[in-house]
């Protein structure tokens, strides 16, 4: 009885909860924009995405093929004709690194998107239905956690053969457990609350409850994790390409360029350094962005 006097029935309560959630967003945006680190992360990632999108316009030499007339200029240090110098085949390093951004981001985004979809689905199923299903999914998660991600990705690529699709699949698989875990805990937090109970008493079906109530609540941690996973994905891709099991030549990738430069570390350290700086910068960007989003959405959580 008192409930009704306070603010109406279950429907009204569900509406209030939704309104509260809506009010949270502007505050989070304000916190995000007033944080220097978060904005720096955003700037770096936006810059990277623009470079990747407009790579064909920025590139002034073929980044794939070896131009035999330029072979004599191999390992030429940075200068007027080539801003970042040339690699050991005389190819323009700037063109290769810019094209590499496109490849790395493509691999990263696709892998994280796939990992997020599969992981979140598993997390929702585990958290919402509980019991035996939950047990099986979470034990599978534990198993995936037991492998260092680079080693699992290595084994997968080794078995499937090195190709862009297999690379994306391998990196996606290693990012699944993180998303599953976060989504499951979000579901568990809200599953038994009055909000969901009232929605159910109004006759809402499982799917509707998940879409309207569970997903919006888990958005913040998932977005933050997605950005952090992007950083990890870029590092894993670079690591696999460095070992020669990622992006295959002549397609340029930062890890591959870095590995090629290794042989000329003494005479032409700039090849390794420019590729290294490109990886470092992009990973810093996504890490800052991820931390920024997390802090803005949930100022209390720090870990």
């Amino acid at each position: 009885m008192t409930d009704i006097q306070k603010g109406g029935g279950p429907a009204a309560r569900a509406r209030t909860a939704q309104a509260r959630r809506k009010r949270r967003l502007p505050k989070a945006v304000k916190r995000f924009t007033s944080s220097f680190n978060a904005m720096l992360g955003l700037a770096i990632t936006v810059f990277l995405v623009l470079v990747a999108l407009f790579a064909p316009l920025l590139v002034h030499e073929n980044p794939y093929q070896v131009d035999f007339s330029k072979l004599s200029q191999r390992l030429e240090p940075p200068g007027v004709s080539s801003w970042l110098g040339r690699d050991n085949f005389g190819r323009d390093l700037f063109s290769r690194i810019v094209t590499g951004a496109r490849i790395s981001l493509l691999v990263g985004f696709s892998a994280v998107a796939a990992g997020l979809t599969v992981g979140s689905l598993l997390g929702i199923i585990a958290g919402y239905f509980g019991g035996f299903v939950d047990e099986v999914i979470m034990r599978f998660n534990d198993v995936l956690y037991a492998f260092p991600s680079i080693l699992l990705a290595l084994a997968l690529v080794a078995a499937l053969g090195p190709s862009l699709t297999n690379l994306i699949a391998a990196i996606a698989l290693v990012s699944v457990p993180g998303f599953a875990r976060i989504m499951r805990s979000s579901v568990l937090q809200i599953r038994d609350t009055e909000l969901v109970e009232s929605a159910r008493s109004l006759g809402a079906r499982n799917l509707r409850i998940i879409l309207r109530h569970v997903l919006p609540n888990s958005l913040a941690p998932t977005v933050a994790l997605a950005s952090a996973s992007m950083a990890t994905a870029l590092l894993t891709e670079a690591g696999l390409s460095f070992l020669g099991l990622g992006v295959q030549p002549p397609t340029p990738s930062w890890g591959g360029i870095l590995a090629d430069g290794r042989e000329f570390l003494r005479t032409a350290p700039f090849v390794t350094n420019f590729a290294g700086i490109a990886i470092l910068l992009s990973v810093v960007g996504f890490n800052l962005l991820g931390d920024g989003i997390r802090d803005a959405m949930d100022p209390r959580s720090k870990l």
Binding site: A238, G255, G276, I279
Partner: peptide, 9 residues
């Protein structure tokens, strides 16, 4: 954020 193989090099 530094790839470990780059740090090594």
């Amino acid at each position: 954020s530094t790839p470990i193989f780059y740090l090594g090099l």
